[in-house]
Design a protein around this nucleic acid. Structure first.
Lengths: 248, 248
DNA sequence: CTAATTTCATGACATGAATCATTTAATAAT
DNA sequence: ATTATTAAATGATTCATGTCATGAAATTAG
């Protein structure tokens, strides 16, 4: 598939995809976690080494199993990070938004992405190749420390979800996911969770099938725990959702 | 290469337990990941600040929900890191052995251990309190970098298990766990996995019930995929186990 | 050493959730 | 527009896995 020698990795290394579109619009060097946490005098180097890309809805930033080439910082957009099973199942591990870093799961001895990253809506990113990223780590202790703390937080979160997957029933997991998503993405003026996600993706995120999710969402609507309008979901009775999380 | 095992870890903190027993026998300042990765001139400080403790089988090093006080480095022994659900269920996240760090899940903004660490056999540890650990991080970039890579590896491992929990059936997960444990703990002279673990713990580790685990272990024995002798298990047909991991 | 308690073994049973099948709606392509 | 694809809705059916109940074994306590 990908016979990416050092050379080809310099320009647009990211993937085998149609070739990513370079974007004129760079980030402001102030918003993403890397820019914020690096020393001011490192910013020019950062500016030189970053590339801006745009991804359309459904396009992959990176693909599970491919060689790790760099890290992405989401300028504006939404990216799901997912891991597949067999060839028709997957689990969504994370939904990243503006300001989030993506692709960092590629760090470590194993040089292949353990997951894929796919744009859920049109997305602008800053891309930093791996070697410059490593230089940045070496040169910016604060950034490195913060990244460490970020990994620690993600590990905690991951293990909590793992526990939930093992012991919570589907209804509890869905309740949990809705509460989490509302917290992470906030609500729009009408009170709907500020995230447009397909049922299929929501099912993959909670580790269940579309059909089960569908049935249980209907139940939740009937019980007046939530209300829905197309792809938008609103939490009506958070207390009830919390109760579902306890049981079983 | 770097770092310790793929999986180890936990937190550590002096806890409310009976009060930990100080141990005269310190580690040799050469074996654990921290000692190996710090600069030589930091070792005296390390030596001054570490405390050695001994835990009996079943004793907790630290407890989920308690305040994080420090990190543990296993000198000799076995520690399970587990997270509970309700009051009668748990999931074992990791089984840490000699050289592994435990308690590091306590790092981060949240100051409470998200998991418990319990000795599965008599265990000697080095204990470093949180503030000195943070100093060590600040002073030893290599150690910090390696810890970062370690977290990255643990996150990958955790997310892989999460995916498995969501999509693999119980038999596949058990097959997976046995292969993993053989790889991590090796085999004794008779070919048994060099780890003495109760069925209950094995069930908690694979995210299933004791009864299901029991049934499936019997199946595996009948199919000549494994053989058992008390708490010891031997892999007889690894290929078959791998097949179970694929299906479903 | 004997009793008491905990862990382990095992079958019967219930049920949650996945799978399958089919219909309808929505989105994208020509 | 019209067709083609892909996603959503929904009932019927199966099956894997958890729950319950009970007895044996093993460990701990007295």
């Amino acid at each position: 598939m990908l016979l990416c020698e050092p050379v080809c990795c310099y320009f647009a290394t990211a993937n085998t995809q149609p070739a990513m579109k370079l974007n004129k619009k760079n980030c402001d060097l102030k918003s993403c976690s890397m820019c914020r946490q690096c020393q001011p005098d490192w910013l020019p180097a950062l500016d030189t080494n970053r590339k801006s890309f745009h991804f359309k809805k459904g396009e992959q930033l990176f693909t599970e199993g491919e060689k790790v080439t760099g890290m992405y910082f989401i300028n504006k957009g939404l990216v799901k990070v997912h891991k597949r099973w067999g060839n028709d199942k997957e689990l969504i591990l994370r939904i990243a938004k503006d300001g989030d870093i993506v692709g960092h799961r590629g760090l470590g001895d194993d040089e292949f992405y353990p997951v894929s990253g796919t744009a859920m809506e049109p997305t602008d990113v800053c891309y930093i190749d791996l070697s410059f990223f490593n230089s940045t780590l070496r040169t910016n202790p604060d950034f490195q420390y913060n990244l460490l703390m970020f990994f620690a937080a993600e590990l905690k979160e991951s293990e909590k979800r793992m526990r939930n997957l093992a012991h919570m029933n589907v209804k509890g997991r869905i309740a949990n996911a809705l509460l989490y998503l509302e917290k992470k993405f906030g609500k729009d003026k009408d009170g709907y969770i500020h995230l447009s996600i397909s049922r299929q993706d929501l099912a993959s995120y909670t580790g269940t099938t579309y059909e089960s999710l569908f049935r249980i969402m209907n139940e939740l609507v009937a019980e007046n725990a939530i209300s829905t309008d197309g792809k938008k979901t609103q939490i009506v009775n958070a207390t009830l959702l919390h109760e579902y999380m306890e049981q079983n």
